[in-house]
Design a protein around this nucleic acid. Sequence first.
DNA 1: ACGTCCCGGTGTACGGCGTCCACCTCAGGC
DNA 2: GCCTGAGGTGGACGCCGTACACCGGGACGT
Lengths: 236, 236
Amino acid sequence: MRELPGRPDPARRSRTPLSRLRVLSAAVALADEGGADALSMRKIAQRLGVVPMALYKHVANKDELLDGMIDTVVGEIDPPVDGADWRTTVRLRVLSARRMLLRHPWASAVIETRMKERPAPTPAVMAYLDEMIGVFRAGGFSLDLVHHAMHVMGSRLLGFSQELFVDSPSPAAPSSSPSPPPEEMAARYPNIAELAGAVAHDAGSVVGAGCDDQYEFEFALDLTLDGLERLRDAAA
Amino acid sequence: MRELPGRPDPARRSRTPLSRLRVLSAAVALADEGGADALSMRKIAQRLGVVPMALYKHVANKDELLDGMIDTVVGEIDPPVDGADWRTTVRLRVLSARRMLLRHPWASAVIETRMKERPAPTPAVMAYLDEMIGVFRAGGFSLDLVHHAMHVMGSRLLGFSQELFVDSPSPAAPSSSPSPPPEEMAARYPNIAELAGAVAHDAGSVVGAGCDDQYEFEFALDLTLDGLERLRDAAA
DNA sequence: ACGTCCCGGTGTACGGCGTCCACCTCAGGC
DNA sequence: GCCTGAGGTGGACGCCGTACACCGGGACGT
């Protein structure tokens, strides 16, 4: 009774062979069930029927695993519908993001912390932002105004409150990721590139510190207060 | 050569006697320097020149310590100035909150997670919200509108994105804190009480689920989009 | 057909973590 | 002068992330 060579015996080689995707899925499922602090390499491994160290053949370490998890859930946000005007497109997208955050309650905090200390957002986040910028541009917003708009939306977009663009990737950081060259990044995220270029230009700075976060924060705050005041006056 | 009885010998009893406040200060300092994950009971103890378990005479466990840290830093937010109109009062307060969050980069994520799983915000947070509600009320906002406003401000207020009021403290939770009786809470936080009463009433629900988070989120989102649209049109 | 390489899973071990428990010390009240 | 109880101690347990050495077996050049 011989085995088909390509078909491993389910008794001896029962598990499908593991992969980065399977690891990330198990991690997300675990975090969904038990919260962020129920997540451990050992538990993930156990759930996959494998020894803990096996995971390290597919993710570099726990930080990189968290980045992967962010990428996974941000990838769940619905793509922009087309054929709708900017406003309903943005609206649907943000509501989809919110649904994702409610599905994965651990995500906001994880995104928040990783954004704050890592220079480079994950690719899915970049794509999300790039598309969002594109929608605003197509809606007739000037580059300047899009920039403000992204800051204003900040907290609604993904749950983090501020300082999204750290845009100079602080070259001192010993990044493990290959950190694709700028021109490739520009090709992949054209809207982000355009925006970053405009902001860096009119700020006159060499690079980095592309925008004044304090100014942006106050801009958003005042816009909100404007809205509230208008509402109050309309009620009277 | 005798010691004054009340004055411990600095060689034998060198440390000032430890206290909840000293523990919290050391914890905050440690987190400020090294981020949230550099915070450990053992490191705090070390910095205080004391054995780790000594801390547990002053805080129940690490979770309760985190709550205490939140209370500490939220307490750093400037009190409302008086004599100014609602708008500048809110503005100054929110900017002060932002300064606090920049001083303590770990705080947003910690607040976010603790808010999400703990039913009762810490007293300082309650006080902060209560005062903020008071400012809006004094500014001529209806109870209804204040309620919306608090949700709209949500992310700007403290950095968390949503679902601030879990207002029914879910009696199932085996809360370690004494959980003061409602009437005392109403006395301490009159504006919150008033608001909670109004919301619970017009929602018609028995208690809890006081407001429709989804509705509030969309309300805030639409207000923001309104503002952006107005800006775009003004630019044209 | 056989040797080699290397990919992916294994086993062991280390240092750090939060916290339980039993213990000691000593200032203050009777 | 004894008792008590608050506050600090020491050790231990179980869990964590992960470094390191090790294999089994399929792929592949010869």
